[in-house]
Design a protein around this nucleic acid. Sequence first.
DNA 1: CTAGGGTTAG
Length: 672
Amino acid sequence: MASLPSVAVTRTLKLDPDFRKHPTVEKSKHLISEKSDTDPFGWKFRNKVGGLPRSTFNDERGDEPQIAIQIFQEMLEAGAYPTNYTLGTALNACSSLYSVMLGKQFHAYIIKYQIDFDTSVGNALCSFYSKLGNLESAIKAFQRIREKNVISWTAVISACGDNGEAARGLRFFAEMLTEDIIPNEFTLTSVLSLCCTMLSLGVGAQIHSLTIKLGYMSSLPIKNSIMYLYLKCGCISEAEKLFDKMETFSLVTWNAMISGHSQMMDFAEDDLSAYRSGCEALNIFFKLNQSGMKPDLFTFSSILTACSRLVAVEQGEQIHAQIIKSGFLSEVVVGTALINMYNKCGSIEKATKAFVEMDTRTMILWTSMITGFSQHGQSQQALQLFEDMRLAGVRPNQITFVGVLSACSHAGMVKEALSYFEMMQKVYKIKPVMDHFACLIDMFVRLGQLNEAFDFIKKNDFEPNEFIWSLLMAGCRSHGNLELGFYAAEQLLKLKPKDTETYVLVLNMYLSAGRWKDVSRVRKIMKEEKLKKLHDWSWISIKNKVYSFKPNDKSHFHSADIYKLLENLLDQVKSLGYESLETLEVTNGDEEKTYSSTAYHSEKLAIAFALLNTPNAAPIRIIKSIFMCRDCHNFVKFISLLTAREIVIRDSKRLHKFVNGHCSCGEFSCLF
DNA sequence: CTAGGGTTAG
C-alpha cells in the first residue's frame, strides 16, 4: 500500500461552512440527533453515550456520515495524518451524503498530495463518482490507479451497471480477465447483475459456469443473482430449481423471486401467462409473510408494482395497510410504487392522498403523480403539479415531460404543448425522444389536424417510429383522410413492426376501404413475420377470485345469465343513443376466424358478469389483453351512465376510467 | 476501498 507523503496537512481540508445547507444534507436532517445551530453534528449525543454510535461504522441505515466527516476534520485539526484507508472511508461518507461539493474537496485534497494513484483511494473515488451518477469521472479515477486490484475492477464494473451502461461494464470485465485478475464473489454478482439488465442469458450462463469453476456456488449473493438472472430471462424452471435447492434464504432471495415474477409479466409469451406470473408474485409474497421474515422496502415496491399490473386494488390496499404498520410508508420508493399502484388501478383520489402525505418528494415521485393526472385526463392538475415541482426546485427529466406533454395533448392545448416542448430543450437541455414527438403527434391527430401533424414531422426532422405511424394512420382513418392514411400505412409496413396489434390496424384500414389486394398483401407479411396471434382476454377479480373471459365465451357457469343481461343492456343503451358499430373487424389476425362480432368482445362479457356478481355501487375493474375497439369503448361509456358504476379498464395501450358516460382517455380509442 | 433485490413513460 502506498502511504501518504509526510506533509503537514493541518487545516488544508477546510470544510465549507455552508455545507450543512446543501439540500441533500437538509434531507438527512433526521439523521442528526438533537440538531441545533451550535451543535449541528450531534456532539451532545456523542458525549452522552461516551463515544460514537456504533452505526457510524457500519453500512446499515441510520449511520451518520456527517459525524464521520466532522471527525475527519477534527483529526486534521489535531495534526494527525490520514492514511489512504481513512480517506476512502471519508469519501464513503460523502457518497452517503450525496454531497458533490464535499467529495470534490476531498478529491482536491487527494490531488494536492498526489495520491490518486493509490489503490484504496482510487477505489473509493471511483465508487464515489459512480454514486453521484458521474460515470466518466468514476472511470477516470479507476484509470489513474497504478496497481488495480480486484476491488478496483469490481468498483468500475458496478459503476457502469449503476449508471445504465451495462455493456461497458461487461467490456471492463473482459479486460480484467485478460489482465489475469481473478474475479471474486463481489465481481461476479456485479457482472451477473449486468447480465440481468441486458437480459443476456448467454453471457449469464457463462458466468454461472465460471462461478462453479471458481467454487463460489456456496455464496448466497451469488445464488440470488443467478436465480434472479434466470427469472428475468424467463427461465422459470431453472430459477425454481435453484430456489428449491437453497437451504438458506435471505430476504434478497424472496425479493428476487417476487420482483422476478412481477417483471416477467412484461416478457411473458402470452397474456394469460403474464397474468399468472403476477398472481405467482402475490403468492410468494404471502408465503414470505407466513415465513415470519419481515418484508422491506424492496419487497413492498415490487409487490405493489405487481398489483398495479394486475389492477389488483384490493390486494394493493391490504398491502398498503401492512406498509403503514411496518413503518415503510415514508420510504420514497415505496410511496412511489403505492401512488403508481393507485394510479394504474384508476384510483386517482387515493394516489393523490398518498402523494400529499409523502414528506420526501423525489423527481420520480412528482413524475408519477403528474403522469397519473395525465392518464386520468386531469390535464390542469397535471400541469399545476408540474409548476409546483419546478417551484420546489426539483429538476424534471425526460419522462416528466412525457407526462406534461401528454396532459397537453389530452386537453388539446397546442400552444402550451409547444411551449413546454421548447422549455424542455432550452431551459432543461433535454433532447426530445420519440415519446415526446408521439405526444405532440397524438395531440394534432386528436384535433383532426393531420396536416399539422405531418408538418411537425417535417419541421422537426425525425423518423417516426411504429407507434407514431400507427397514430397517424388511425387518425387519418377516423377523420376520413384516406390518402394520408395509406401513406402512413405504407411507412408502417416498411418498418416491419413486431407488434400484431399494429398489423391489425393496417388490415382494418384496408378492409374498411375495400382494398382487398392490400388486405391479402398485409396478411402475407403477417404470416412471413410469424407474428403471435392476438387473444382478446379480459380478467376481473372478485373477492380474491379471478375470472377470465374470451370473446363469445360460453364456458362460464352463469353464461346464460351473462348473455341475457347483455342483450337487455344493449336494448337499454340503444334507447339512450348508443349505435353499435356493426362493421366487422379483424380482432386477432387469425386466418380461420378473421372476423368476430364486436357484440361479444371479452370486456362486455366481463362487465355483465361483474354487474351480476358485485354490489350495486361497486366499481368494476377489468384488465384487457389487447386495446379496446371503438364499439366497446362507446358501449362501456353508455353502460357507466346507465348503471351509475365506475368502470376501469386497463387495456394494452392505456387506462380507461368510465364515469357517467365519459372516459378519462379523452377518446383516444375512438381513433382505432 | 468492491456485491445480490426496488420506483416514473406513448
